[in-house]
């Protein structure tokens, strides 16, 4: 015992150095201020570049001018004239597409025949650029709001279906077996086990669907609308009015950020059971 501890001591005095640390990393956190900093820097560079002249006025408008245009847009009341129809189209179209997509996705996740029948159909529809179908939708649903709703609905439908049935497939079977073993009705199992269990996957699918919805909204409005952010951007673009074009683009970005934040808030509320 004594000799043991002595040799221990001796070794210790011979070469003592701390064990090299090699853990850590691989767990990115998100700091909000970094995002703001990056935005501020980019805008700062653009402002400085356009003012000092090494970015020509034809390449990029001055951010402060864009801001002024934005202010004018707001004060003239045109902002809401463009924003209101756009938001209506976005909400109506994506609500139709998403609710239908979730329903079909859940059915695919539950029934063999529906799965066998629909999965190939969805696979065939998914890669079609939906914008290409706009002329068809104009014939089917009219040049007015109908075709725009249909385009957005169709565009959000396919990614929602795919995300939903994937999420249903991933619900733990042991939970479903538990439900059956306690004699829960089929409907209860779907409502209380399958749907909540699929919620994380469905919500992350929504992020993608809604981004696609914004893209399609603008495309539809560019192809035929008097008012709407797409129409506004198209008009500005054809006049090479870069300030207004950028003001429109900023609105779209803001829309994207707001939607993403909204889904984040829903996730925090609905998925608060996850750590």
């Amino acid at each position: 015992m004594l000799s043991f501890s002595m040799s221990d001591n001796k070794q210790h005095s011979l070469s003592a150095k701390p064990v090299a640390f090699r853990g850590g990393g691989f767990s990115p956190k998100s700091y909000r201020w970094v995002g703001f900093l990056v935005f501020a820097t980019l805008i700062g560079i653009a402002e400085w570049g356009t003012r000092s002249g090494w970015i020509s006025a034809l390449t990029l408008p001055k951010p402060t001018d864009v801001l002024l245009t934005f202010k004018e847009l707001y004060q003239s009341g045109l902002l809401f004239k463009h924003l209101a129809p756009s938001l209506t189209r976005l909400v109506v179209g994506s609500c139709m597409g998403i609710s239908l997509g979730i329903s079909v996705g859940v059915l695919i996740g539950l029934f063999s025949y529906i799965r066998s029948g629909f999965v190939p159909v969805v696979a065939a529809l998914f890669p079609i650029p939906k914008i290409a179908l706009l002329p068809l939708f104009v014939i089917w649903f009219g040049i007015d709001e109908g075709s725009k709703y249909a385009l957005i609905a169709f565009g959000t439908f396919t990614p929602t279906v795919v995300a939903t049935y994937g999420a249903v497939d991933n619900v733990e079977r042991s939970l479903i077996r538990m439900g059956q073993s306690f004699g829960l009705s089929w409907f209860s199992i779907v409502r209380k086990i399958v749907i909540p269990g699929a919620m994380p996957g469905i919500l992350s699918g929504l992020r993608i669907s809604l981004a696609i919805a914004i893209i399609l909204l603008v495309a539809a409005e560019m192809l035929g609308a008097e008012y709407g952010i797409g129409a506004y951007i198209l008009e500005a673009g054809s006049l090479y009015d870069l300030e207004r074009l950028f003001a429109g683009v900023v609105i779209l970005s803001l829309l994207g950020v707001i939607i993403s934040a909204l889904i984040g808030a829903i996730e925090r509320r609905v998925l608060n059971w996850r750590s």
Binding site: S174, L175, R177, M178, G179, S181, F182, G183, L184, S185, S188, K192, I193, P196, G197, M199, L271, W273, R274
Partner: peptide
């Protein structure tokens, strides 16, 4: 005939109270 499973099979989105309530609700 009621099971107790090795992996517990609790619904992670329900509280303890609601997990028990689940099997009474039907």
């Amino acid at each position: 005939l009621t099971y107790i499973f090795q992996d517990f099979a609790l619904l992670p989105w329900r509280t303890v109270y609601d997990n028990i309530s689940l099997v009474l609700e039907d």
